[in-house]
Structure formats: structure tokens, C-alpha cells
Design a protein around this nucleic acid. Structure first.
Lengths: 105, 105
DNA sequence: ATCGTTCATCGTAAATATACGATTAAGCTT
DNA sequence: AAGCTTAATCGTATATTTACGATGAACGAT
């Protein structure tokens, strides 16, 4: 058989799905864009630009941080968030690999 | 202000998040891989290879179809699923665009 | 030491996602 | 038509996600 029945998914599949999940909300897409456009990365600035409460934005940041797409750096009472380019590139590569295939029909 | 507060997310952001949501489960990642590896695209063959019930696989296929990443073609009593390369390329481009940015820290 | 600022976390409500067995629908085959 | 195969849908249970206000913790400034 070319593709036998699997018992569980691979780490790669699970990881890629997890990264996709982190990108699966428009607020988190927007946050990534904001982190690229702004000089400052503090949470308050992000909250000011989104139609969401501070607690909700914090939750979205946590989700992005969970998969490593962003890093948070403590700066006094503030937290400076920034994109983790290494992880972003890794995600890009994995998605490119998945998307480079050609359909069967 | 460089990035004013938004009232709602753009269509692009919502769409990209939606595509990411479709990719946010390892079973759906695996299904895309299977559709590339197999000559046959029928649902039964996919079900045979996954550790999930037929009803669940059907739900995952529906989610992939919802965002247009796959198409289903009726072939008698069977359905032949295949990857929609045009949509896959569109998704790839949008993600590339998002990922091409450079972090602020 | 107290106060204001900043952000995470808690508690919670509502919505959505995931999974399965059972059923239905549609199409072959006989 | 009756029966078989294929796959979607229904009904349902459980888990997760999303959102918010309220609270708490950490830090700087007064």
C-alpha cells in the first residue's frame, strides 16, 4: 500500500497545524502586521489599534507566543513584543513545502 | 497616527485567517498530503488511511472545501476529491506576503 | 510606602470545533 | 424494485476558543 493507515499524526503535521491555528484569527494576523509596522511593540499600542479588550489581546499574544511566532521582552512595566523571524521562516518553509505539491485531478 | 484603531478586520485578513483555520488540524494537513500522493481521491481511500471515522473525515473534507483548498467531483456513487491548485497558490502568496516582513526587535 | 501604569491571569459566558454512531440520499448492479 | 456501496448529514457529547470585566502582580515615579 502506498499510504497505509496511520495510528497518529507526525510531529511535523501536528506542529504545522498548530502554527496554522495560531494564524487562524484575523486579530492575530493583524497583530503580526502591526508588529512589523510599529517601532514600539508594547501591548498597549497594539490594544489601541484593535477593536478588542486588553484581556483579549493579551490572550491572542499568548497564542502567538505559544507557537513561537513572537517573543516578548520585559522592559520595565511594559512588555516589548516582536516577531520571531527564525520561527516565521520555519513556518514559511513548512507551508511552502506543503503548498509546492501538485493536485491529483 | 501610523496605524489607527480599526473597527473591523479587512477581507484579506479574515480570508487569510480562514484559510489558516482550514489548515489548523493535523488530519486536514494529512488529507492534503494524501490527495497529492494518491491517484484516487475517493473519500473511502482517505478514511482508510486516517485514524478517524468516516463522518469525521467527511467533516474535515467539508472544511477544506469550504475555503476552496479542495474540490469534490461526483463520480457515480463516489466523490473524487482533489486539491485546488489555484487556491493553494493564492494562499501561498498571501502567506508569503505576510511572512516576508521583518520583525521590529 | 503609596500611587499610577502596564500587562497577565482569573472567572465566566457564549460560540465554535471535534468526534462518533446512526441515518439518509444517491447511484450502481442485479 | 431490492440490495449494495459510497459519502453526506443529523444528532449529540465533549472540548476548545473567544470575548470581556475584574483582579492581581510587577515596576516606576512621587
Amino acid at each position: 500500500m502506498a499510504s497505509p493507515k496511520i495510528e497518529e499524526f507526525t510531529n511535523e503535521e501536528t506542529w504545522l497545524a498548530d502554527v496554522a491555528k495560531a494564524l487562524s484569527h484575523p486579530a492575530r494576523i493583524r497583530i503580526l502586521k502591526i508588529l512589523n509596522e510599529m517601532n514600539s511593540c508594547m501591548v498597549g499600542s497594539i490594544v489601541d489599534k484593535l477593536p478588542l479588550a486588553q484581556a483579549t489581546v493579551s490572550q491572542h499574544l499568548k497564542e502567538l507566543k505559544r507557537v513561537g511566532l513572537i517573543d516578548g521582552e520585559i522592559d520595565g512595566p511594559k512588555i516589548c513584543y516582536c516577531i520571531n523571524n527564525q520561527m516565521l521562516q520555519k513556518a514559511k518553509s513548512a507551508l511552502d513545502k506543503l503548498f509546492s505539491k501538485i493536485g491529483c485531478c
